[in-house]
């Protein structure tokens, strides 16, 4: 019972991570496209300024809850994806410091450098995480002790690559939908254009991945139901996005799509955690990889108390910064804090 609860909690953290950090990856990746001048770029960056750091904690918590609830999963998965995860860390490091560093000097080359770091980091991160998460289901050569026995090439599974690409596309769509709610001026107009252009390619990718996922997953009717969620939502996002409905409707639809797709991956995975292509008997499962009952009980109490509080104050943050970001005359001269 408790291992399953924790599987759901881990899936919830990964889902929340992509729902929240997904749009700030998208904004980061697109900020030089929606913003041509430095001020326009800053408008884009500042739409996610107050929230990106809190969003990234979802990744930390997703990893830490894998460690605490399924130590074997954390150990096998992270050591198998050694180099991709280091590149992910490098991408997140460059991206993370770019927010703070970019505004510290006014020189155009300095700003362009850190804009590039923000863009590259925001593109690589969802791509690499997507490949890694896809590998869980597509399977990796893992031996009886849970150790990865393959090489770097084995990590590039076709399904993983497609999932990575799809999550990247979804982040871009999600980010441009967020910009249509928060940006002003030229950045807003370009975000609207981008949103329309991204709709159909992204929807196609999501539908292909959803079908492939159902094929790969353990047979079960409820995976079909779960697959319907992102599939319907991405169509809704495309319809609202292309017809120029209120920005919030499109953003709502992209939220359900990206969250639904990540949740679908975990639904398709259950009760397996990591498929072994060497021998199905070596696959890590909820049953053979979980922490002890006592440890899970302690963690459950902690999660039940803290998760609602966290959701509460993060929601409040979004309420506080609900207004559109604009470049007033004061901002053009004000120094960064």
């Amino acid at each position: 019972m408790l291992p399953t609860v924790w599987f759901v909690i881990v899936a919830f953290f990964w889902t929340g991570f992509f729902v929240l950090e997904g749009f700030d990856f998208g904004v980061g990746a697109l900020h030089t496209i929606v913003g041509r001048t430095d001020i326009e770029r800053r408008v884009a960056i500042n739409t996610i300024g107050p929230v990106w750091d809190g969003n990234e904690v979802w990744l930390v918590v997703a990893a830490a809850s894998m460690f605490a609830a399924f130590p074997n999963w954390y150990a096998s998965f992270f050591s198998a994806l050694y180099l991709p995860l280091w590149f992910l860390l490098a991408a997140l490091i460059l991206r993370g410091v770019s927010f703070e560093f970019r505004g510290k000097f006014a020189g155009p080359r300095w700003r362009a450098t850190w804009s590039a770091a923000l863009t590259v980091g925001s593109v690589l991160a969802p791509l690499l995480i997507g490949v890694g998460l896809g590998d869980l289901l597509a399977g990796l050569p893992v031996d009886g002790t849970g150790d990865f026995t393959g090489s770097l090439v084995d990590l590039l599974t076709p399904f993983g690559l497609l999932l990575g690409l799809t999550l990247l596309a979804l982040c871009l769509l999600h980010g441009s939908a967020f910009l249509t709610m928060r940006a002003t001026g030229p950045a807003l107009h370009r975000a609207r254009t981008l949103l329309r252009r991204l709709c159909l390619p992204t929807a196609t990718l999501v539908l292909v991945v959803a079908v492939w996922l159902v094929v790969l997953a353990e047979p079960g009717g409820w995976v079909m139901v779960a697959a319907a969620v992102p599939a319907v939502a991405v169509v809704a996002a495309a319809v609202t996005g292309l017809s120029g409905r209120p920005a919030a409707a499109t953003f709502g639809a992209t939220t359900v799509t990206i969250g639904g797709l990540v949740a679908l991956l975990f639904a398709g995975l259950y009760p397996t955690l990591l498929v072994s292509t060497t021998d199905p008997a070596y696959s890590l499962t909820v049953a053979n990889s979980s922490a002890s009952a006592y440890s899970l009980q302690v963690m459950t109490v902690v999660a039940v108390v803290l998760v609602p509080i966290v959701l509460g104050y993060q929601a409040w943050t979004y309420y506080v910064f609900r207004r559109r970001v604009s470049a007033g005359p004061a901002e053009t001269t004000a120094a960064a804090a």
Binding site: A64, F67, P71, Y74, M299, V302, L306, V310
Partner: peptide, 10 residues
Amino acid sequence: GAPLAMEGLA
């Protein structure tokens, strides 16, 4: 893992 997960949450 437990203190690490608590660190993230709290």
